[in-house]
Design a binder for these strands. Structure first.
Length: 548
RNA sequence: GCGCCAGUAGCUCAGCUGGAUAGAGCGUCGGCCUCCGGAGCCGAAGGUCCCGCGUUCGAAUCGCGGCUGGCGCACCA
């Protein structure tokens, strides 16, 4: 049990003896200001109202009541409006180091998820073109969120949903068909709403080469399948280059062929939330707080098809039925309008799916800056920065790191020049460099970085303030991972890593390791820093180089 | 018009789910560098946390009302 867990439990026990209601949430954190101790709690302040006493009086009684094991805390004080500050014995602080080395690559993992299943859906691009930089942000984000959940004990399924059944696919097929016709010299325009990118022409050429029996592309259905397959393959290659893998690829078309869409419509009708108007079938989403009702099946003159949202609902029913009591969708914020509709559709089925199902992580748009100018991204026109272009230009690690270092709900400006630069201004370089420096110490010392556990080393020699600060930062890592996972915010990890790297660089510059009396103890510290940096980076899918 | 998101140092952004004196990088200014990698190091200045009201012992954080910017409001997906 760590010092934090021990004190937290002791506080909870003391609080209950003072008459606090059971199950009070004990906030015990490392204060920003080291003069406020190693750990501090606001428990007395939080209990002031329910106990009807002054915070400082409660704090005094808590301190008098609390039972702590010997050798853990050297001083307890009450400060400010009623904070209780705990000062740990130095041995207890540096005692975190052997724990870190013993856990190794698993340090920071937790079991809070209890192996429960969770589905993380991301990218889910229509197979109508290559993946652009916005998809890249989503790929990095979804993969990191999935990793955070894995690190905290969830059983994660990474899922990609292909909308291969809608009107956009028909546009794609007709666009390719038009290009095929142009290849044989005919003057045919790309249809209204079609795709103009250069990749359409390439697909047309490949179709003609592969289909001698249909050189004019008359068979629209075959053209459609060929184009969708070609683009899916291309997207897969892009994702592979980015180091993202999926466990499940779900196809919208399969929901139709399996009858799942019809079944969902029938259930909605049976549940009594639908009606007919103007020849169309509507879902009364206003029953569930929507501002207007939504069409679920178009009128005959519009083709009589389902609108997109019925297959969307059907798809999420399959997630629920596959046992995912938790589902997270990572999407661009331009789709936020669908959030309520999917949830409402699931509610209208009245099959016991929770109101907040699925959860959403929405991300804002990406603009790319290069040489001080914005790189224009336009899908239909064809001038087009793809995720592969970006990875080729700045490297996989930098792309992933950059996409993860900002909160998802703020607009992100990707600075290509910064991402490529080999200086400390570049945060991914800065963090990786810290890891390389720690590795460098072991290289010079001719020791294997994975040897040793810290056993038998006198860690009491780590007395410098920078060293104590560094150890405390390392000890924070597991809590950090859990909070980032709970908030579904990978950017907390990059922020943490930059802070840790800063402390590591400062320590490295100020103190020598090899040849000093503290060598053995400092090697333990260096290895722990190296390990935590490596763990944080690997969680985010970024390499931790031994040298740069 | 309605909905969602954002507004924090000159710039780019953190801020651990309501805590103590709001932080980092870049930039600016002033010092320093024979070293396990100088691809440097140390320090300083710099704030109406968009505005107002409210809740609270305590608000950048929560609520309400504004202002500014982005996105969305189809029988498209």
């Amino acid at each position: 049990m760590t010092a934090l867990e021990t004190i937290r439990a002791a506080l909870a026990h003391a609080a209950s003896r003072l008459g606090a209601p059971p199950g009070v949430d004990v906030a015990l954190e490392r204060p920003r200001d080291p003069t406020h101790g190693d750990l501090a709690t606001n428990l007395a302040l939080a209990l002031a109202k329910t106990l009807g006493q002054k915070p400082r009086a409660i704090a005094e009684r808590l301190v008098a009541t609390i039972e702590l094991p010997r050798g853990l805390v050297r001083k307890t004080e009450i400060a400010g409006p009623g904070f209780i500050n705990f000062f740990l014995e130095t041995a207890e602080v540096v005692g975190a180091l052997p724990t870190i080395l013993a856990a190794g690559a698993a340090y920071g993992r937790a079991a809070v998820g209890n192996r429960r299943p969770v589905n993380v859906e991301f990218v889910s691009a229509n197979p109508t073109g290559p993946l652009h930089v916005g998809h890249g942000r989503q790929a990095a984000l979804g993969d990191a969120i999935a990793a955070l959940l894995e690190w905290t004990g969830w059983k994660v399924t990474r899922e990609f949903y292909y909308n291969d059944g809608g009107g956009q696919i028909a546009n794609l097929a007709r666009s390719v068909q038009a290009r095929i016709a142009q290849l044989s010299g005919k003057s045919v325009d790309i249809p209204e709403g079609g795709y103009h990118g250069e990749y359409i022409r390439e697909i047309a050429e490949r179709y003609v080469a592969a289909h001698k029996e249909d050189p004019a592309g008359k068979n629209l259905d075959t053209v459609r399948r060929f184009a969708v397959d070609a683009l899916r393959e291309e997207q897969d290659r892009d994702l592979q280059a980015f180091g993202v893998r999926f466990d499940v690829y779900a196809l919208e078309s399969a929901l139709y062929t399996s009858g799942k869409v019809d079944e969902t419509e029938a259930r909605l009708v049976a549940a009594g939330h639908t009606y007919e108007k103007d020849g169309a079938r509507w879902l009364r989403t206003t029953d569930f707080g929507d501002d207007k009702d939504r069409v679920m099946r178009k009128s005959a003159e519009k083709g009589g098809d389902y609108t997109y949202f019925v297959p969307d609902v059907a798809y999420h029913v399959t997630k629920w039925e596959r046992g995912f009591s938790r589902a997270i969708n990572v999407q661009g914020a331009d789709h936020h309008g669908t959030v309520r509709r999917v949830r409402v559709g699931l509610q209208a089925l009245e099959m016991g799916i929770p109101e907040g199902y699925p959860e959403y992580v929405l991300h804002q748009m990406v603009t790319v800056m290069k040489g001080g100018e914005e790189v224009k991204i336009s899908k239909r026109a064809g001038s087009y920065m793809t995720i592969r272009d970006l990875v080729d230009e700045v490297g996989r690690d930098a792309v992933r790191y950059f996409f993860l270092m900002r909160k998802s709900d703020t607009h992100f400006v990707f600075d290509v020049d910064l991402a490529k630069s080999q200086t400390e201004e570049n945060p991914v370089f800065y963090v990786q460099m810290a890891h390389a420096r720690m590795s460098g110490i072991f290289r010079v010392a001719s020791r294997e970085p994975d040897s040793g556990t810290g056993a038998g080393v006198d860690l009491a020699l780590l007395t410098q303030p920078e060293e104590i600060e560094l150890v405390k930062e390392l000890a924070d890592f597991p809590e950090m991972v859990q909070r980032a996972a709970a908030a579904l915010e990978p950017n907390r990890i990059t922020t943490y890593l930059e802070g840790l790297a800063r402390l590591a660089h400062a320590w490295y510059h100020k103190y020598r390791v090899l040849g000093e009396p503290e060598e053995a103890a400092r090697l333990v510290l260096a290895r722990a820093v190296q390990q935590v940096l490596a763990n944080g980076l690997s969680l985010l899918g970024i390499r931790a180089p031994e040298r740069m």
